[in-house]
Amino acid sequence: MKPPEGDPDLLRRAGVRCARLAAELADVESLLASAAAGRGMRWDGAAAAVFGARATEHGRAVRDTRASVERLGSLAAAFAAELTEVQQLARATDPQATEQARLEERIALSRTRFRREMRIVQAALSQVLLRLPGTPARWTGPVVLPPGLGTRPVPLRPGSRWTGPVVLPPGLGPRAIPLPAPVCASPVAAAPLAGGTGQSA
């Protein structure tokens, strides 16, 4: 048996990087918390309520992301340890021994378990992503319009003439551009003179 494939060092590094990412997310969390509860002037009313709710909701999304990242990191670290151990055992034991078959089975089991855990974390991440505002599926690819509908003119084949309609920009044709009706202020009653001489009683 060749030593089981996989690189525990890379997996360990993934774990360390997950911890770093989780720490950064925790920073964002505490920033959001202090944004939702500063000190000093009182801010209330609908705007404050909307902002508070939004900041809190976003804080929850950040927290859930962090939880998944931490789980990912610990899974990677655990699998790295398992892989290291099995690889060492595989190198130490006799290639023909029955021990090898047991090792092979053990690592196959671990790999399957790791993949299943990854799927679970993946599903959790997708859930958070779907909950974020503004995620509804949006086409982000190129917009391809049929020829002639875009801003680029359709090139005429050499020797052919334009036979389509001629559309002039507004104001250049025989029709005048309709002007908007003038806006008149409605009459207002005369304001009383400042100072109040008592005549208005």
């Binding site: 000093g40 209330d44 404050a48």
Partner: peptide, 10 residues
């Protein structure tokens, strides 16, 4: 109604 403590400077 929710109230927030905010100071423009902070």
């Amino acid at each position: 109604m929710q109230q927030l403590d905010v100071a423009p400077g902070s």
